[in-house]
Structures are given as C-alpha cells and as structure tokens.
Amino acid sequence: MPELEEQKTLESGYVTLEDLRRHGNIPPDEVLESRAVPIFDCIEEIPCTPCRDACPTGAVIMPTMNDKPRVNWEACTGCTLCAQACPGLAITIVNIPFGKRVLKDPTKALVSVPYEILPIPKKGEKVALYDRGHRYLGEGEVFSVIRSYKYGTVLVNVVVPKEIALEVKFVEVVRDE
C-alpha cells in the first residue's frame, strides 16, 4: 500500500501529514511536547542543501546534496534558521511547549510559517489557518514576525490550537472588508 499512497501524493501535488510520518519527518511525541522542532515537508531526493548549510548545530543530516534532510532531534535547538533558509518554503517550526510555558495556556502552540506574500501579517492580527491541501482549519493570531535579513523569507509566528499544530502550513490575514 505505501507505494500506492506515494502515487496519490505525487498526483495531488502535495505532501500529506501521513507521508511525513511514513518518512520519519515527524518527531516522537516526547520530543514534540518538550521543544520547538522543524517539520520538513521535503521527502524527495532533490539537489538542495540550504537547510543543512544554515543549521548552526549540524542537526540537519544530509551526506550528499541529493539526500533527503533528516533531523537529529537531540542536536536541533529549534532556532528556525532552516525554515528561513529553505527555498521551497517547506519547513514550519512547531513549538508545542510554547503554549504552556509562555502563554500559560496548554491548549495552544506556536507555529512559525514561512511567508512571502505582501502585505506581511502584523503582530496581533487574526489569520485564517490552512493545511497542506488548503483545507480551512480555523483562526489563529500572529504572535510575532521574524524578518530574516540574511535569508529573505519572513517567518510568521502564529498561535494556534495545539491539536492542529502539525497541520498548519499556510496562513492568510483575515481583514474586515
């Protein structure tokens, strides 16, 4: 069956959460619950290395340029540089403990979404949350915006319900007409 599933993904044109689990791109629960982690929507062997080159701790493992990136969860500090550097905008940073530790609300999590469309969402703005196939997931709020001068891709940090943190992949500002 996995092969058939793979085919479906290729036809639909996007990577699903199930694909990512199968490829080992989703960390174990204890890791997810304890720190910020990058989720790489990158499961093909393509010649591309900016994530590896941006990683300050060597946590992105990619022996040759065509290898799929693998993350050493122990070495990763959740610094977000890979997400800023990725030319495919394929990496989100999922920070589940952020809800409990910073917001004092364990039902929430923080997701950093790479963003390249003007206008850039602003702190405090409401955003519509979408999954990988543009399914509407609900509303989130912009906590902060990281403007990456080195890598040029903005990261929008969004507070979302914890249970959909792994699904959020795109946001759109909700503006009153």
């Binding site: 044109g13 996007y14 990577v15 990158c42 393509i46 905008l89 979408y130 990988r132 196939g133 543009h134």
Partner: peptide, 19 residues
Amino acid sequence: KSAAYLVHSSKIRRMGIPI
C-alpha cells in the same frame, strides 16, 4: 504525474491553487 519538485507544487496547493 507532475514533473515539478514536490516542494514547489506543495507551495501552490497549500495556497488553494488546484493542480
């Protein structure tokens, strides 16, 4: 099947553009 890199096609699918 699309000849594009999945990362490229994923980028437009998540924005709601049908392929």
